Simulated assay, not measured.
Amino acid sequence: MNRIVLKGHAKDLGDHFIIKRVLPAMEKRSIGPFVFLDHFGPKKMELGNEMVVRSHPHIGLATITFLYNGLIHHRDSLGFSQLIRPYETNWMVAGKGIAHSERSERDPNSDLLEGLQTWIALPKDKEDIEPSFQHIGKAEIPKLEDEKSTIYVLGGEFQNMTSTAVTHSELIYVDIQIKIESSSYSWSINPSYESGIYVSKGKIQVGDRIIQEGELVYFEVGETISFQSLEPSRLMLLGGRPLAERRHIWWNFVSTDQEKIERAKELWAKDLFPKVPDEVDRIPLPEH
């Protein structure tokens, strides 16, 4: 099998904050409803070297933020002000339009910041729903642990465990920590789902392909997820039912309708999006 493997590429989010962007890619624009995957860090947080993502808009998608290390302060135009810590998730549904900001905070337990942010394209009939926000603490996330691995089900259903996250798309999103090297894993998921495993740390082997840190290996619709760990690793399993329609993506906007993106661009340019309380700075509309 000529298996698809995506390699994260470096991107500057501004102020020299470099991340790995894995999705979208030329080889694969989406996996299930997931249209975007960024791996940020690990980066040492020092005074004057914080992560600052000023107020910016979204439409037509849901964002998921999951941390390995550090603290991030989320603020949005619904009025939510929420710290997110490791093993917690922030689910933000943009729907017809939301603005938010993200800033790192000092963490007494770690001077590193690292995590993943993914975007989910909302179903066509839900692109214009009311925006919403859900924070899920570590104790609320289903966990399965044995001598080989620790698994947290962040979204959807996996191994008879169901996430408490409210989702509008058929998906699976699972944090997997492999504790030992040279062990084999094989899991069946919904046969209508495609999926991928992203290697945040470590190394695994799928068939005759070695998947390195910063790479994502793709599994086709209905395919059993099988791999061997080559060393202790941190993985993210993601996927779901493939999108039925093409998605337009421009900056922070996702839609099946290009006209909706044009309207969102105009609203942000004219400062007519909902405002984020206690945020003065905003990211201007890009020229391109």
Results as ranks from 00 to 15, higher is better:
Val276Tyr: 06
Arg263Leu: 14
Leu37Phe: 13
Pro277Trp: 06
Thr118Leu: 15
Ser233Arg: 10
Asn252Cys: 01
Pro86Trp: 10
Phe273Gln: 07
Glu170Pro: 00
Met45Asn: 10
Val52Ala: 00
Ser188His: 13
Arg75Asp: 04
Lys138Ala: 15
Asn69Lys: 14
Leu71Asp: 02
Arg282Ile: 00
Gln177Arg: 13
Glu147Leu: 12
Asp15Leu: 11
Arg247Tyr: 07
Glu50His: 13
Tyr87Glu: 15
Glu130Asp: 15
Gly32Cys: 09
Glu181Tyr: 09
Pro191Arg: 11
Pro42Lys: 08
His39Thr: 05
Gln177Asp: 14
Gly60Thr: 06
Leu6Thr: 05
Glu215Ala: 04
Leu216Val: 04
Gly70Lys: 04
Leu272Pro: 01
Leu47Thr: 11
Pro191Lys: 15
Gly239Trp: 05
Lys124Gly: 01
Lys179Val: 08
Arg263Glu: 15
Leu144Asp: 14
Leu37Ile: 14
Ser226Arg: 14
Glu266Gly: 03
Val166Pro: 07
Lys44Tyr: 08
Ile261Gln: 07
Pro57Thr: 04
Asp175Gln: 14
Asp12Gln: 09
Glu102Leu: 00
Trp251Ser: 01
Ile178Ser: 08
Lys124Thr: 11
Val53Ser: 12
Glu102Trp: 00
Ser110Ala: 04
Pro57His: 06
Asn90Glu: 13
Ile197Leu: 15
Met51Thr: 02
Gly41Ser: 09
Gly207Leu: 11
Lys143His: 10
Ala99Gln: 08
Ile59Cys: 06
Val276Thr: 11
Ala165Phe: 01
Ala244Pro: 07
Arg247Trp: 05
His135Tyr: 12
Pro108Leu: 00
Gly137Ser: 14
Val221Ala: 06
Gly155Met: 08
Ile129Ser: 03
Thr224Pro: 03
Gln258Pro: 02
Val221Cys: 06
Ser77Lys: 02
Phe133Thr: 00
Pro108Arg: 07
Lys11His: 14
Thr256Phe: 06
Ser81Pro: 01
Gly207Tyr: 11
Leu238Glu: 04
Lys96Arg: 15
Gln159Thr: 08
Arg54Phe: 01
Ala244Trp: 02
Pro286Glu: 05
Met1Arg: 12
Ser188Cys: 04
Gly95Trp: 08
Pro232Glu: 12
Gly115Glu: 11
Gly48Leu: 04
Val276Lys: 00
Leu23Ile: 08
Gly48Phe: 05
Asn252Leu: 00
Asn69Cys: 03
His58Val: 02
Gln212Phe: 12
Ile204Met: 14
Tyr173Thr: 03
